[in-house]
Design a protein around this nucleic acid. Structure first.
Length: 348
DNA sequence: TCTGGGGTCCTAGGACCC
DNA sequence: TCTGGGGTCCTAGGACCC
């Protein structure tokens, strides 16, 4: 089963302020009277009636509905609610895989004997999440993670969708290729040029042809299109990188401005690293310029848990690599290459 | 219309080692 | 004068997901 929370961030806000349930409500960037930079993170279904949805520019949302409720992210609250949901779903399966803050896979094959029972089980889980966490969700059920995930898309909002093993191919076949998990805009475009419009077209495609075009990813595409997915539900493994990003209100060329923000971001990343008691050995600086070109610059250092090393190296990367002709729009600072050394002692 | 922030995985070339 | 095969690590970029 894939359990996916409906309009999660706004649903969380509705717990704090139930009156929002009947108002168009948006969580995301500050619209600043239509001049704000950034996007809609989530909105409730009341807001969706006005054409607003996740990922559209906040300025566009403001044009569509200036008098909607615009709320900033309260990430730590969402994390708390997410942990609540995780512990609820775990009780139904023993093992749960958290895919993102609002999505969980559970394997219930040793809890239910057949699909009918699975459907009943899903109803119970949904009710439990609703009662205990006070949040709506949708559930997709199938015999693979892939199809459960795709089924859940069709269940939204507030629904349950079961796709039996024997129905999986027929379920996927009519969908446009772009709706298949793992296929984004670029791949959809390429596939379209090759003549594959639906998942059914793709399922019949020759594996060799797909491999010629996409390398080993061609095998994955072919398998997915044929509803073949042997991946298991896994408890979460360790995080591989920690990063913070920031978009300037006005693009800037001034070193002092940029360096000041790099330091701020590095501090936030460092705080996170310290809390998790991690040691890292790669620091990466991300620069997006006004023309939207984006560059990553990274540097490997001796493994360390000294948070200040993040800022020092990120600033160095900026000085060494920044294109001084261009204005900077966005910055990102990342630490990665974590080592298992978790001592609280400082490493040198 | 004007495009966020947090992640993951993959590829490819070059340096370097044996 | 012309040079292999195997491997790892580093850096940069790209695609994708929520």
């Amino acid at each position: 089963m894939l359990i996916d929370m409906d309009y999660f961030f706004v649903a969380c806000e509705e717990i704090k302020r139930p009156e929002l349930k009947t108002r168009p409500t948006i969580v995301g960037a500050d619209p600043k009277e239509g001049r704000g930079r950034g996007v809609v993170m989530t909105c409730n279904y009341v807001a969706r009636k006005f054409g607003i949805h996740s990922a559209i520019p906040i300025s566009q949302a403001y044009k569509l509905k200036p008098d909607a409720e615009y709320l900033p992210m309260d990430y730590s609250y969402y994390e708390k609610k997410s942990a609540e949901v995780l512990s609820i779903v775990r009780e139904f399966a023993g093992k749960a895989e958290q895919v993102s803050i609002d999505e969980f896979f559970i394997d219930v094959s040793d809890k239910v004997e057949n699909y009918e029972k699975a459907l009943e089980y899903a109803k119970k889980i949904k009710e439990e999440i609703n009662e205990k966490a006070n949040l709506p969700c949708s559930i997709g059920i199938s015999s693979t993670k892939l199809v459960a995930k795709m089924a859940c898309e069709k269940a939204k909002p507030n629904g349950i969708k079961l796709v039996k093993d024997e129905e999986a191919n027929a379920f996927l076949a009519p969908l446009p290729v772009g709706q298949l998990y793992g296929i984004g805009k670029k791949t959809e475009e390429k596939l379209g040029k090759m003549g594959y419009k639906t998942v059914g077209d793709l399922a019949k495609a020759s594996m060799m042809k797909l491999m010629d075009e996409f390398g080993s990813f061609g095998i994955d595409i072919h398998n997915y299109a044929n509803a073949i997915d042997e991946s298991e539900v896994l408890e979460n493994y360790e995080v591989k990188s920690i990063s913070r990003e920031f978009t300037f209100e006005h693009d800037t060329k001034k070193d002092e401005h940029v360096i000041k923000e790099i330091n701020k971001l590095a501090k936030q990343v460092g705080k996170d690293i310290e809390e998790r008691k991690l040691s890292f050995k790669v620091v990466t600086l991300k620069l997006r310029y006004s023309d939207f070109t984006e560059h990553l610059h990274s540097k490997s250092i001796r493994p360390t848990n000294v948070a200040e090393e993040i800022a020092r190296n990120a600033v160095e990367l900026y000085k060494e690599n920044a294109d001084k002709e261009k204005k900077v729009r966005k910055l990102g600072v990342r630490a990665s290459g974590f080592t298992d050394y978790k001592s609280q002692k400082r490493l040198f």
